[in-house]
Design a protein around this nucleic acid. Structure first.
Length: 587
RNA sequence: GCCCCAGUAGCUCAGGGGAUAGAGCACCGGCCUCCGGAGCCGGGAGCGCAGGUUCGAAUCCUGCCUGGGGCACCA
């Protein structure tokens, strides 16, 4: 169990002995490291609730907790703060115990079945800059919740059922009318090989979309084609399946490069079989009503003081749309996956849409009230002008191009700094890839999930300061030292009470990990992990400057320090993994 | 018009009702006979405005100002 949890229990007992709620005993890292290591602020709210004097109550808590305790000092300060400092022996023995804890003190929560919906790419379109944030934030949130003990399923939720596919079908039909897919009489025996490559699709889609925008007749044909697709016209289905397969392969390649891995490659189309029964039931139960030709669900309630537009279940032409699919997907995830919580890492601008979907899901009973539906939205990647990132020509930058840009810059930086020069080209390229991705991901994840940030390649790839490369450097330096120690047959041993400030501070920093991971999970906010990983490496650097491990003459001290390095490296490894950042062996 | 989000140091951004609001960059000044200087130590500078709740507010509430976004049958 984590150190602050143990301390919180001790203080919880003390509050309970005063007839007060144990929750008041929560212990946190001190805001005033000059005064103490930890603090408990519970006496102030508890005193208010109990109508007692806060300082007296704090003193009573201190008296109750003091006997046989691991504290070097407990003191009362200000209006009722309890300041806590541990004995060095106790601190060291806690940190020593982390050596055999793969999760560095993270205690598993009661496991919940959680679905994280976080990719949202569209078939036939290349991934672009806008897909970066949801991908890595979602992946990080997924890994964090998993580390906390939950059963988490990541679903890419492909955009594969919308009007664009009608537009593509019509475009292909106009270009190649003789393909068997367009023969309405045919129901079987289509070619196994796809008629289009990913490159074809990427050329076709913008043309098809532009033509449909200009020509209403064409747009109507596309809408009709999509309805036929949904209804199961064999040729259209076969063609669509080809397009989907070809696209998924291309999309997967980019996600692979980002180390973003989905458990499910479901999409909007996956739940097609649920649409008719769901709509029928919602209509019969009176949840869905006809309005202006469309079928809607009223999601505004009497308590609302603001306008919430109705949820559209079916368009006036009778076709389903993304709202329908999202609702049916909730039904599917609850019934098929046993989802107790569904988390959507999707652009914050979809906020109103999700509010409507969630309301409709709860109102209709598709989601029981104890199922948690949540949309922790992500912000956008902006250019230096503060507007969504574009290429110099004003076009949309693909994600692949963005990654290439950063990796190229990372390689230049390595070159400039005469690093990795003695390695062969393959290893150099591998290092540049890892450094570039670390720069990109850390540059992104250090910002709060919902904020828009300015993409600054020079800052992100910089070797100075709070960057991905700095964190990799820290990790590589630890690895290098452990290798060196092994070569000299210096072994690690039990962590003993610290003598120096830097040594003690590193130990204290390590005790924070479980709370940070928990908080990041609860808030779905990887930036807390990013921030802490930096602080840990910075603390390590101070320790490294102050304590010359390999030259230390006291064997027990040296062994303890080495163990401290091992634990710090394990902690950093865990944190970087949660940030989806990979560490090279050397650089 | 209504709604949502944001406004914190020169810049880019963190910040959980708690004590003296932090980091990186940039700027100024120190530290290499020493395990990797991509480092370490030190310095100046800030919560949009006005009220309110509270023992205590960057954090909660109200109003205003500024910026971004969203407001049935696109996704």
């Amino acid at each position: 169990m984590s150190l602050t949890k143990t301390l919180s229990q001790l203080f919880g007992d003390a509050f309970a002995s005063q007839g007060l709620d144990r929750a008041f005993g929560e212990v946190v890292v001190s805001a005033r490291p000059d005064l103490a290591q930890f603090q408990c602020n519970g006496a102030m709210p508890a005193a208010k609730q109990a109508g007692r004097n806060p300082r007296d109550l704090a003193q009573a808590v201190i008296d109750a907790v003091e006997d046989g305790s691991p504290f070097a000092e407990l003191s009362l300060a200000g209006p009722g703060f309890i300041n806590i400092t541990l004995t060095d022996d106790h601190l060291a023995s806690y940190v020593d115990s982390l050596a055999v804890e793969p999760k560095l003190g993270v205690t598993p929560a009661a496991p919940k079945q959680i679905v994280v919906d976080y990719g949202g790419p569209n078939v036939a379109k290349e991934l672009h800059v806008g897909h970066l944030r949801p991908a890595i934030i979602g992946e990080s949130v997924k890994r964090t919740l998993r580390t906390l003990g939950h059963d988490v399923i990541g679903d890419v939720h492909l955009g594969d059922w919308g009007i664009p596919y009608g537009q593509l079908i019509v475009e292909l039909e106009d270009r190649y009318p003789n393909l068997p897919y367009f023969d309405a009489q045919l129901t079987d025996g289509y070619p196994a090989e796809p008629p289009v490559s990913i490159n074809d699709l990427q050329e076709l889609y913008p043309v098809a979309a532009a033509r449909a925008k200009e020509d209403e007749g064409l747009a109507a044909r596309a809408r009709a084609a999509v309805v036929e697709l949904h209804d199961g016209r064999p040729g259209y289905r076969a063609l669509w399946q080809h397009m989907r397969n070809v696209s998924v392969e291309a999309i997967k390649a980019v996600y692979d490069r980002l180390d973003v891995e989905f458990d499910l490659w479901h999409g909007e189309s996956t739940i097609n079989h649920r649409l008719q029964p769901m709509v029928k039931r919602l209509f019969e139960e009176g949840h869905a009503v006809e309005s202006g030709g469309a079928l809607i669900i009223e999601v505004m309630s009497d308590e609302d003081t603001r306008e919430i537009p109705p949820f559209i279940l079916l368009k006036s032409d009778g076709a389903s749309l993304y709202t329908t699919w999202d609702l049916a997907t909730i039904e599917d995830r609850i019934e098929e996956l046993g989802a107790e919580e569904i988390i959507y890492i999707v652009d914050v601008r979809q906020g109103l849409h999700f509010e409507q979907v969630f309301r409709a899901a709860y109102k209709t009973g598709i989601a029981p009230s104890d199922v948690v539906l949540e949309h922790p939205g992500n912000g956008t990647v902006n250019g230096p002008d503060g507007k969504p990132f574009k290429t110099r020509e004003g076009g949309l930058l693909t994600l692949r191009e963005l990654i290439d840009m950063v990796v190229t810059r990372a390689a230049e930086r390595l070159e400039e700094n005469a690093l990795a020069v003695e390695f062969d080209d393959i290893e150099k390229a591998g290092i540049a890839e890892k450094v570039g991705l670390a720069a990109l991901k850390y540059g992104d994840l250090q910002n709060h999930r919902s904020s828009n940030y300015i993409f600054d390649i020079d800052r992100f790839t910089s070797f100075d300061g709070k960057t991905g490369p700095y964190l990799l450097y820290g990790a590589v330096r630890m690895k290098s030292m452990l290798r060196e120690a092994a070569e000299r047959s210096i072994r690690s041993g039990q962590v003993i009470a610290p003598l120096q400030e830097q040594e003690r501070n590193l130990m204290l920093q390590l005790t924070r990990l479980p709370e940070v991971v928990e908080r990041a999970g609860e808030l779905r906010a990887p930036n807390h992990i990013a921030e802490y990983a930096y602080e840990l490496v910075a603390e390590f650097s101070r320790f490294y400057e102050a304590c010359h491990i390999l030259r230390e003459s006291d064997g027990a001290r040296q062994a303890s320090w080495l163990r401290l390095v091992e634990i710090t490296l394990a902690a950093l490894g865990l944190l970087l993994d949660l940030l989806t950042i990979e560490v090279p062996e050397r650089m």
